[in-house]
């Protein structure tokens, strides 16, 4: 079984087929950006992109995602030490407080902007409704996504 994570293809032992994607990312690859907030797919803190679509990694087994391509927050971060425009926008707009929901929130927003690079604020709300945040009231998160949208419009 093969699985690509952040551009690197991993060969996975069939014995791990039932392991949750979230646990594998965190425990085996050390990619701890995805967080366990509820473990039933209700909070979105574990969101990663699978073939470009937001997926709650606590609800997927490795067998569910075999052969697919996973993007985590670590993979969105440029290797040259800079920030992705969406990450920068989250800082500039004040969209980060405790930061626990942030990786999942950024990836959910990234998926939206790839699909729709000029979303209305109501569309941003809609796209992020599966990602809970208790700190921000979402206002500045929506500001951040709006702010970053320009960089997706090419």
């Amino acid at each position: 079984m093969k699985l690509t994570v952040n551009g690197v293809t991993h060969e996975i032992d069939a014995g791990l087929a039932e392991m949750r994607l979230l646990d594998w990312l965190r425990e085996e690859l050390g990619l701890t950006g995805a967080k366990a907030g509820c473990e039933i797919g209700a909070c979105g803190a574990c969101t990663v992109l699978v073939d470009g679509r937001p997926v709650k990694s606590c609800t997927r087994r490795l067998r569910d995602v075999a052969g697919k391509s996973v993007l985590t927050i670590e993979g969105l971060t440029p290797l040259d030490g800079s920030l992705h425009p969406l990450q920068q926008a989250f800082l500039d707009a004040g969209a980060v407080q405790c930061g626990f929901c942030t990786p999942g929130m950024i990836l959910a927003a990234h998926a939206l902007l790839l699909r729709n690079p000029a979303p209305a604020r109501a569309e941003i709300r809609q796209a992020l409704q599966g990602n809970l945040c208790r700190c921000t009231g979402y206002q500045q998160i929506i500001d951040a996504v709006e702010l970053a949208a320009k960089s997706y419009q090419k």
């Binding site: 950006g33 927050i73 670590e74 920030l83 920068q88 800082l91 980060v96 942030t102 990786p103 950024i106």
Partner: peptide
């Protein structure tokens, strides 16, 4: 702590 929080670091 902003950079650490948006990069998953």
């Amino acid at each position: 702590d902003g950079r650490a929080k948006v990069t998953g670091g």
